[in-house]
Design a protein around this nucleic acid. Sequence first.
DNA 1: TGCTTTACATTACACAGTGCAATATACTAT
DNA 2: ATAGTATATTGCACTGTGTAATGTAAAGCA
Lengths: 215, 215
Amino acid sequence: MPVRESSNEAVAKVRRAGSREAIVEAAQRLFLERGFGAVSMDELAEASGLARRTLYNQFASKEEIFREMLLKVSGQLENAFPPGLETQGDVEGVLRVVARVILDLHENPEYLGFLRMVVADSRQFPWIAEEFAAVMEPQTERLARYLAYQTSMGVLACRNPMLAAHQFMGMLNEFSLWPWMTGRGRAAVEAEEVVDESIRMFLRHYRQTQPKGSS
Amino acid sequence: MPVRESSNEAVAKVRRAGSREAIVEAAQRLFLERGFGAVSMDELAEASGLARRTLYNQFASKEEIFREMLLKVSGQLENAFPPGLETQGDVEGVLRVVARVILDLHENPEYLGFLRMVVADSRQFPWIAEEFAAVMEPQTERLARYLAYQTSMGVLACRNPMLAAHQFMGMLNEFSLWPWMTGRGRAAVEAEEVVDESIRMFLRHYRQTQPKGSS
DNA sequence: TGCTTTACATTACACAGTGCAATATACTAT
DNA sequence: ATAGTATATTGCACTGTGTAATGTAAAGCA
């Protein structure tokens, strides 16, 4: 009986489901963790429980694996905001959901690895940045559209909804994304406090001025 | 006169000022542009107008060159905010100066390259992130201290000055830094509009409504 | 039988770093 | 000035390593 020293469960998965998935799966783990340049085909083969030659049977090159894996991950990020968000009337509730989604993303290792790669590897592969933009910009636009709608309804007063959307997201990014980018954990501030304070600031500025209850 | 095929002026500089400076200078250009891994010692030698062997006479390794160059650049970034900013009484004016400094940084290729390297290469060299933090955090703290001071004077009402400082900077980062990170130029919004709107939002939220200390 | 996988060998190349001998430059004593 | 001395620079060959990618033949499985 052949004693396989590396991951038996991965081998079993190959038999059932084809090797491409196993390769992309291993690529997702390794590339997102360490970047394109720091992962060799040998490691990729070992991690997927396949022979190196098999990788070349299934993909034309290392970059092809990288590409397929990144497109898969970016596809998973497309449904970031829950559907039907725009129809909610409760502005503060919607902002709170958006904030929650963003902070959750910042806890998601896949998103963080993806983001790091957008910055690090998009010089070598410009299509990474384009893919990132294609996935992320619609999300911001959804929020901006919602703000524009609420403005047209007289609830908010956003002269430039896209600007407002970015301001809101910027405040949240600064606290969990930015510290991570620079190597340390998150900033020494409670997440709840950031969300509360940012929503308060946003609404105080953009709410259509009409006396509606006190704080 | 003997015609040297590569950069005569660089050679002349070496003779006068020592080769270390020429090497670090070339390193600054190449590394900040393309990152640590994408620059070879051959290119570095060619760009500095020196023999590759000379690089190894002056530095122990490629990483040593990288380190010296990054420390030099980070040193230049230490004086980001003009001195004496904290004593200004005009809050809006100070915020405007801070915003101007930040947006200028985002136009500075050295800062941008440095930043990209913080994200890209700090896995391989964790000291990069530490260096970045050591340079940048005091800047944010200066702003936070100013906000705290103005709060103690009854002008502002910042319960958490560090939070407020980050909120302000986050809104600015979102517009010029973030789009650049993801490969495209800046966002399709006037810089002046971002500054104006962000200052307005900040002050509307944090300005003390009654110019009086309440204890 | 036909396709895939596997292991192993091989090609081709780029790169960091070293040893060494020849040479150029700067400084110093006479 | 001239010769001598210390130091820096240079070119080149060389080692060693890591890597992507290809070739090939045997084994596994439908």
